[in-house]
Amino acid sequence: MLDHTGFVVTDLKRARAFYDAIAAALELQTIDNGDGAFLLGKSVQQPIPYLWIGTTRPSYWAQGSRAGLNQTHIAFQAESKAMVDEFHRAAMAAGGKDHGKPGPRQGAGDYYGAFVLDPDGNNIEACARGGDLSR
């Protein structure tokens, strides 16, 4: 039920490389959004929901806020266990840090997920729910 969310990063080029990698693993796209930001979403044709990622400090932030100060958690839907595995592999190859290897989570039902920290320490997850998670 996400329309949009976003966060500020310290290095747009480094963030773009990281999010390009995980977008490909999740069959998503990154889209330019001016000099200081980009969007991550389904496609240009289906732009919402999206994740805004940029270096500009939003006007609505509370005083003292900065990139990475308040860790953000974003969970992306994945269609399969294999897609979650590919997300984790792509994130590690693009400079992410493991924050929970791919696997089922106790007490979460039919759930398979992986957690990584992006280059600014934001907690990024991909998860598959229900269906046949044996693949």
Results as ranks from 00 to 15, higher is better:
Leu2Pro: 09
Leu2Cys: 09
Leu2Asp: 09
Asp3Trp: 11
Phe7Tyr: 15
Val8Asn: 09
Leu12Ala: 03
Leu12Arg: 03
Leu12Met: 08
Lys13Asp: 11
Lys13Trp: 08
Arg14Ala: 01
Arg14Lys: 01
Arg14Pro: 06
Ala17Tyr: 08
Ala17Met: 10
Tyr19Ala: 00
Ile22Ser: 07
Ile22Gln: 03
Ile22Arg: 01
Ala23Gly: 11
Ala24Met: 04
Ala25Ser: 02
Ala25Trp: 04
Leu26His: 06
Glu27Pro: 01
Gln29Ala: 14
Gln29Thr: 13
Gln29Arg: 12
Thr30Ala: 08
Asn33Cys: 14
Gly34Trp: 05
Gly34Phe: 04
Gly34Tyr: 14
Asp35Met: 10
Gly36Met: 15
Gly36Thr: 14
Leu40Ala: 13
Leu40Tyr: 09
Gly41Trp: 11
Lys42Ala: 12
Val44Phe: 14
Val44His: 06
Gln46Trp: 13
Pro47Met: 11
Pro47Gly: 06
Ile48Val: 15
Pro49Thr: 05
Pro49Ser: 09
Pro49Gly: 07
Tyr50Arg: 10
Tyr50Leu: 15
Leu51Thr: 04
Leu51Cys: 03
Trp52Cys: 10
Ile53Arg: 06
Pro58Ala: 03
Pro58Lys: 11
Pro58Asp: 12
Ser59Pro: 13
Ser59Gln: 13
Tyr60Val: 14
Tyr60Asp: 15
Tyr60His: 09
Trp61Met: 14
Trp61Thr: 08
Gln63Ser: 05
Gln63Trp: 00
Gly64Ile: 10
Arg66Thr: 13
Ala67Met: 12
Gly68Ile: 00
Gly68Phe: 01
Leu69Glu: 12
Asn70Trp: 05
Thr72Leu: 03
Thr72His: 12
His73Leu: 10
His73Arg: 09
Ala75Pro: 01
Ala75Asn: 15
Phe76Asn: 02
Gln77Met: 04
Ala78Glu: 11
Glu79Gly: 08
Ser80Thr: 01
Ser80Tyr: 02
Ser80Ile: 03
Lys81Gln: 07
Lys81Asp: 03
Ala82Lys: 02
Met83Lys: 00
Met83Asp: 08
Val84Gln: 08
Asp85Gly: 04
Glu86Ser: 07
Glu86Lys: 12
Phe87Asp: 04
Phe87His: 02
His88Cys: 00
His88Trp: 08
His88Pro: 05
Arg89Asp: 03
Ala90Val: 00
Ala91Ser: 14
Met92Ala: 06
Ala93Thr: 01
Ala94Val: 02
Lys97Asp: 00
Asp98Pro: 04
His99Thr: 09
Gly100Thr: 04
Lys101Trp: 05
Pro102Glu: 08
Pro104Met: 03
Pro104Asn: 11
Pro104Lys: 08
Arg105Lys: 11
Gly107Ala: 02
Gly107Asn: 02
Gly107Ile: 04
Ala108Ser: 12
Gly109Gln: 03
Gly109Leu: 06
Asp110Phe: 02
Asp110Tyr: 05
Asp110Gln: 14
Asp110Thr: 01
Tyr111Thr: 00
Tyr112Ala: 00
Tyr112Gly: 08
Gly113Arg: 01
Ala114Val: 07
Phe115Trp: 10
Phe115Gly: 02
Asp120Lys: 04
Gly121Leu: 02
Ile124Met: 06
Ile124Pro: 09
Ile124Phe: 11
Glu125Lys: 01
Glu125Gln: 01
Glu125Asn: 06
Ala126Gln: 12
Arg129Ala: 10
Asp132Ile: 06
Leu133Pro: 00
Ser134His: 05
Arg135Asn: 11
